[in-house]
Amino acid sequence: MTTELTFEPKIVAFVCNWCTYAGADLTGTSRIAYASNVRIMRFPCTGRIDYNLVLKALEQGADGILISGCHPNDCHYSTGNFHARRRWVVFRHMMEYMGFDLRRVKFAWVSAAEGAKWAEVVNTTVREIRELGPATEYTELHRKGVA
């Protein structure tokens, strides 16, 4: 018996309860098969998704991050996704400034009716992260320890 070890990326998805979580539910009830590499975390709103959660996920060995919520003007709380969008712009800029690979952190708007889009977003993310290989930048910091 031979065992072939292939790299399977671990993706953590932070999604909002009202749109993307319901959208991902629709993907399942529509019997659309998609990559099983994603671990979905449900949040009340994208406005609740703190960038520290992203940092913690990377720290704990995630190879890719997917953040998704309601389209603009669709937020259950009216403006949560608008606030999140601003924060993401700055967060992405700072990650880039400190030299992290932005291709590992993806953002999407997926509504409760877009089950097919969710499958596509996950599949695309998994494919791209698989090409990038395992995330090392962040775990490298762990390894370095005290300077």
Binding site: H83, F107, W109
Partner: peptide
């Protein structure tokens, strides 16, 4: 803690 409806979102899928 504020926003504009037309903030950049070219990076969002």
């Amino acid at each position: 803690s504020s926003f504009a409806a037309d903030d950049r979102e070219s990076f969002i899928l």
